[in-house]
């Protein structure tokens, strides 16, 4: 299904675990340095109300005066587990995109504030880079370096799967529980 900006609470609450979603609109990259910075009280350089944060350290180069994304797959999200939930609440972040899923704290905040976790396909650097159609701006690049900066990505039909929704469901918990049970059966 399509998800187009603005990313309102109503649209996000309608999503369920397992939904395959294509996102169109403006999203922001942010990984370890950005999350720590915001958590420590740093001022966000962009308005994060109803925003989507992408856990990604992209390869971006300037060609003919324009930013072009060469590779933009997701990075492992669980490192932001201590910060993500509280930041969602404080700034009204509606969704994060990453890989590997997040933990119970983030899941609880997703429920509380009306947010979801989107899983992009790990390693699919080329498919995902192609869906970034424009890079209007970059923030905090001098402070944190290019991969850790906040990049503004205008994306078109950016492919993700909902693996944690705002109703307390986590596909990661479900698959872990089912596969652990299955292992017990196999081992007898």
């Amino acid at each position: 299904m399509l998800l187009e900006a603005p990313f309102t609470e109503e649209k996000i609450r309608a999503l369920k675990v397992g939904d395959k979603v294509e996102i169109t609109g403006l999203i922001y990259t942010g990984r370890d340095a950005v999350h720590k910075y915001l958590h420590d009280g740093g001022k966000p350089p962009v308005d994060l109300k109803d925003s989507i944060i992408y856990h990604c350290g992209p390869v971006v180069v300037k060609e003919k005066g324009k930013w072009v994304v060469k590779a933009a797959g997701p990075t492992t999200s669980i490192r932001e587990e201590p910060y993500q939930g509280p930041l969602m609440e404080q700034y009204g972040i509606r969704a994060v995109i990453g890989k590997g899923g997040m933990g119970p704290k983030t899941l609880k905040y997703c429920q509380k504030v009306g947010a979801v976790y989107f899983h992009a396909v790990g390693g699919a650097a080329q498919v995902l880079a192609e869906r970034v159609v424009d890079v209007p701006n970059v923030h905090l690049a001098e402070k944190f370096g290019s991969p850790e900066a906040i990049w503004e990505f205008q994306v078109e039909r950016f492919p993700v799967v909902v693996t944690m929704d705002s109703h307390g469901n986590s596909l990661h918990d479900q698959v872990l529980a089912a596969s652990s049970d299955r292992l017990k059966d196999i081992l007898g």
Partner: peptide, 21 residues
């Protein structure tokens, strides 16, 4: 997921760019 992976493998080869960043 496997379809995206498969598309990605094809694109990386054509563009001569890293399969994964």
């Amino acid at each position: 997921a496997l379809q995206v992976i498969s598309d990605n493998i094809g694109m990386a080869k054509v563009n001569s760019l890293p399969i994964c960043q």
